[in-house]
């Protein structure tokens, strides 16, 4: 397994380099102008100067190599410096990947936005798993019962109704119709500066997370619970379940130990594969609730033709996707004894 992991990781390196190059080419070919969003009153000569100051007059491959140097060498060195205080080379004047919009290091922006992204998107993922698994199990076990039918309906709604709509409905109910001094009132905008220091601030954090987390979790849960249900149904009709019953096991043991554990194998890998999407943020939900996580950052970057920002973000997503694909494969191997990697 270790050999397999190492081999996969080594193969990932050229793949990722290739991906980074492709991303760069695509971004470069996109008909996007970083000065395009400036007010029309800024004359063309000034725009040209701005473009030059961004380094846009250099040929494509030079800009790509520059980015590679900044991202693969300078950023890790900077991290070592900031986290451990190790200084290799010129620690202060090092050229980092800088956003064209904010004129600040992209990696810092990403780190800055990590907390709210993880709190909201990550938590919604956890919540959706915690809700979806039991729902999927019960739905499958009681197939076609009213619970299952209701579950199907909720999933269908969660899946079909777009998040901007559920978000809006929740906002209208919990932020607008309920008066703001009522205990059930929820803030419609997420305060990214809020810090959890005591019980009260923790409660506020929970309240401001409630709506975005619910909206996202509903959507994720819909998919995941269907998946869990299907996997359970697959296993429930297997012969080994009959064997387990014939052994005289308790029904709970049969379902939770035999069926659930086997059914979880594909579900766990699907969950692992979905983790990178957390870091991709939830563009629409983040917008509605002003969470301003990584999804919103990506959108701002795309709208502003901020190539360094978009390039870095998409590349990090690519890394995460490759990584979690590997993790999913390894998990599968660990969970299912029938699969062995050499």
């Amino acid at each position: 397994m270790l050999n397999y992991t190492i081999r996969r990781l080594i193969f990932a390196i050229p793949t990722l380099l290739f991906i980074s190059f492709i991303i760069f080419i695509i971004l470069d070919m996109a008909p996007n102008d970083p000065t395009g969003n400036l007010p029309l009153t800024i004359p063309p000569e000034v725009r040209q100067k701005i473009r030059e100051s961004l380094g846009l007059d250099a040929p494509m491959y030079i800009r790509y190599l520059l980015w590679c140097n900044q991202f693969f060498i300078n950023e890790p060195l900077n991290m070592l410096h900031q986290w451990f205080g190790w200084c290799i080379g010129d620690c202060e004047g090092r050229l980092r990947v800088e956003s064209w919009i904010t004129r600040s290091p992209v990696v810092d922006s990403i780190v800055e936005r990590m907390p709210q992204t993880l709190w909201v998107v990550g938590m919604s993922y956890v919540v959706s798993i915690l809700v979806a698994v039991p729902i999927g199990v019960i739905s499958a076990y009681k197939q076609y019962s009213w619970f299952d039918q209701a579950g199907t309906l909720v999933s269908m709604i969660g899946f079909a109704v777009p998040t901007f709509f559920t978000g809006l409905v929740l906002q209208i109910v919990f932020s607008t119709m309920i008066p703001s001094d009522h205990w059930a009132w929820l803030p419609s905008k997420y305060n990214t500066l809020h810090e959890v220091t005591d019980w009260q601030s923790f409660v506020y954090q929970m309240r401001q997370m409630a709506m975005p987390v619910t909206v996202l979790a509903l959507y994720n849960m819909a998919q995941l619970s269907r998946f869990m249900r299907a996997s359970m149904l697959d296993n429930l009709s297997q012969d080994y379940v009959r064997t387990a019953r014939a052994k005289g096991l308790r029904e709970r043991t049969v379902v939770l130990v035999h069926v659930l554990r086997n059914s979880l194998i594909p579900v766990v890998t699907v969950i692992a594969l979905g983790v990178p999407t957390i870091f991709g943020g939830a563009i629409i939900t983040e917008q509605i609730f002003g969470v301003n996580g990584l999804g919103a950052l990506l959108i701002i970057g795309i709208q502003g033709a901020d190539i360094p920002l978009v390039q870095t973000l998409t590349f990090i997503f690519a890394v995460l996707i490759v990584l979690f694909n590997l993790i999913a494969d390894i998990l599968y191997g660990l969970l299912d004894p029938r699969i062995r990697y050499e």
Binding site: S188, I288, G290
Partner: peptide, 22 residues
Amino acid sequence: LTFKGGGDATAAARTVLETGEF
């Protein structure tokens, strides 16, 4: 003073005119 950004115009309008958060 807090200067909050992001979202869309409708949501921003709501926070002032309907929810009173801003």
